[in-house]
Amino acid sequence: MLEQIYNHFNDIVAAILFVIGFSNLLFQKNLIKKIIGINIMDVSIYLLLASQGYISGRIAPILTDGSENAVTYINPIPSGLVLTGIVVSVSVTALMLSMTVRLYRKYKTLDLDEILMKVRREKEESEK
């Protein structure tokens, strides 16, 4: 049991982080906390992805001392995928933050429930 946990330590941490991020994203009312939740969720997936490519005892796939033998290095593809994923999550975070700024300027609050309530009231007033 303990050995199993030790062998899959990265995966278990990733799973716990994913649950934390996921529940933050869905259940937090504050928009900034939601965005932090998104980031934790993304990071957990990148941890899972990066640990798939890690082979213990090997080094990062960068040619420094001239060894062209593949046995020296870890698998570079997951690292590349993680880089792509980070770019994606940076742009998503930027977009979410910009929307948050706009909503805050309009409604002077970060609470999504309160914002939705104000939006509904606005709609009802416009229909009168």
Partner: peptide
């Protein structure tokens, strides 16, 4: 650029991100 549109865009984004997170896993 109305409050309602941005609020529904935020909701769309939150739901979509859960979906793409699951796809990435």
């Amino acid at each position: 650029n109305t409050g309602r549109a941005i609020a529904s865009a935020v909701r769309y984004m939150v739901v979509s991100l859960v979906g793409s997170g699951l796809f990435l896993i």
